[in-house]
Design a protein around this nucleic acid. Structure first.
Lengths: 342, 342
DNA sequence: TTGTATGCGTTATCAC
DNA sequence: GTGATAACGCATACAA
């Protein structure tokens, strides 16, 4: 005895009004007289009515949903941001669809589909490596105005971007180490094709140059943001004949595993080596020694990206402009950095 | 000059066939002759047509989407699982909607809405603390058959549940410590209302009893899975007059911060205290000393939960049965456990 | 194998 | 302030 989901017609019948009135009660209640409005809401409660999302979406040509493209969902850095994006969007009546861009299926294709088939109204991408093909597709469909970058970005696409002041973060790290007396500073990078890695590395090198510091080529150690690459970087570091006295890692995860691996080699942090991370993951404050790092306002990044998108979705004619919002970063001084030894 | 999104009618016109034929080409291409099928696909390419999801959903009464309810998206434990859920669902043509149950809005209400208004076809919940009200609502709508638990579960709802063998995990931990000579073993629990915490604690106590070990009440230290609570537990531990020689933590995060805090108090792990965690987060293998822990197959949990749900969505009449799938756990012996000192 | 015609449940346009 | 009615774009029962 399947009891069918009540529809707007059933509510109208119970309330003794037309379907149009029920619909209005749902979408613009202020336009109804108080008495009919209450009649309708009573009927809605009585019938257990829920609006059919598909029908509404079809009619209004809106999805009430947003897609978030995440590079590696398993990374806690991104999932925290996703959480705050979810919070803001949910509060504004939007559902959140999520897609991991690490998946086998071509992400650009998938994302375009979501946008073009009306599954979602907009896109927040935490992945800067979006294909230009995707950009073209969305542009042709006049949907490029509903895309916002968060954290990462692409210089090829002139879109709003909410990001940390990565260059400042790198400078803060270098300045801090410099002030502690360090003159031989290494840098563990992120993936070569990652925009964050590029910017942080460039700023690191520029600041070192400004301070008159020489950075030997071998001190630029390639990493990829992962724990494993941090450990690998440590191996290279300890093997250097003239070891740097400090290292700036482009991510906390690399910094943490680098420190652990250095310990295994008998190197003491910060006595023998000062280490600065980037991100300020929660665990950075709970390890021993606790990690000096550059804090990113992850919650703020997600929140502001979501707000930016909502603004654009609400505007009649979304502009394809590359508004850049820089989120502040802070140097969090903990226990992995110290003045250089004798 | 907004170029309107082409519809099925436009494709039909270009291909010189009826709209029904175009629709069939999309949904059951094998039922068309090869020539017309190709004509249609050519027309689809030519027009840049994409099916309108809302219209299709309205017509088919399906959403092609699944909701995943996550308690604390920011927790890497859950986000890894979400990632593998995403992978399986995407491969099967389902979109993934995500909702963080930590949000202010009443999760049960929100989840029910998603299910009842047709936004999603099914639900995978990683949160065992779903309200019974939600259960009732879904049951009334005959939608309870499309819900699957993953990791956590609720004894009040007879639903399929993909979970780790938590009791075995606790036993493995105790047995390992016992074999190393430990007789005074403490336990840091998860939140009191969490089903995983309950099961792990009960199994811990039961195994200790079986082995003839006494567990002083104060050795059961309340935690809540977080880093902060692990540090707090460490404080209590070091303050004990007759300290246990080993501790089994209900999560890796608690274990990691407990170890760090103990170090600050001059306690050496594993010399003065052996520690076993639970989860096997990736970082457990990258800290120094590396963490002995109980591995959960997070990827497998997510994958199997997704597969279970898909099976049920494909079945004509989903059963409301409480099929329990136990995912194996493994003791991963690393460096935080050692034989008891003299 | 293909075409015709109807309806999915809602909102928007127009009357009243 | 409210009601009748026509779309929204697609999939399917039925015909051919």
């Amino acid at each position: 005895m399947q009891k069918l989901q009540p529809k707007i017609k059933d509510v109208a019948h119970v309330a003794g009004v037309s379907t149009a009135t029920v619909s209005r009660a749902l979408t613009q209640p202020e336009r109804l007289s108080e008495t009919t409005r209450e009649k309708v809401f009573d009927a809605i409660r009585a019938t257990g009515y829920r609006v059919n999302k598909a029908a509404r979406n079809l009619r209004t040509r809106r999805a009430g949903a947003v897609l978030v493209l995440v590079p590696n969902l398993g990374n806690p850095f991104f999932s925290t941001i996703l959480s705050s994006i979810n919070e803001v969007l949910a509060a504004n009546g939007y559902s959140v669809l999520v897609f991991d861009s690490q998946q086998p299926s071509a992400p650009g294709q998938v994302v375009s589909d979501y946008m073009l088939n009306g599954s979602v109204d907009g896109l927040i991408t935490l992945d800067g490596n979006v294909s230009s093909a995707m950009g073209d597709t969305l542009k042709n469909a006049h949907m490029l105005g509903n895309v916002v970058f968060c954290c990462e970005w692409s210089d090829a696409l002139p879109l709003p971007s909410i990001r940390s002041d990565n260059a400042l973060g790198a400078r803060l790290a270098v300045d801090h180490l410099f002030a502690l007396g360090h003159r031989r500073i290494a840098h563990v990078t992120g993936p070569a094709d990652n925009i964050l890695a590029k910017v942080r590395r460039a700023a690191f090198e520029a600041r070192c140059a400004e301070l008159g510091l020489t950075v030997a080529p071998e001190w630029i150690i390639p990493g990829d943001f992962t724990l494993a690459s941090g450990a690998h970087a440590a191996e290279q570091l300890v093997a250097m004949p003239e070891r740097p006295t400090a290292v700036f890692c482009a991510s906390d995860e690399m910094a943490l595993s680098l420190i652990s691996r250095c310990k295994q080699h008998g190197l003491s942090v910060p006595k023998d080596l000062s280490v600065v991370g980037f991100d300020d993951l929660e665990i950075a404050g709970f390890v021993q020694p606790s990690l000096t790092t550059i804090r990113q306002d992850r919650t703020g990044l997600g929140r502001r990206a979501a707000e930016e998108l909502i603004t654009r979705l609400n505007s009649v004619q979304p502009q394809e402009i590359s508004r850049i919002v820089l989120s502040p970063v802070d140097l969090i001084i903990r226990d992995t950095t110290a003045t250089i030894g004798p």
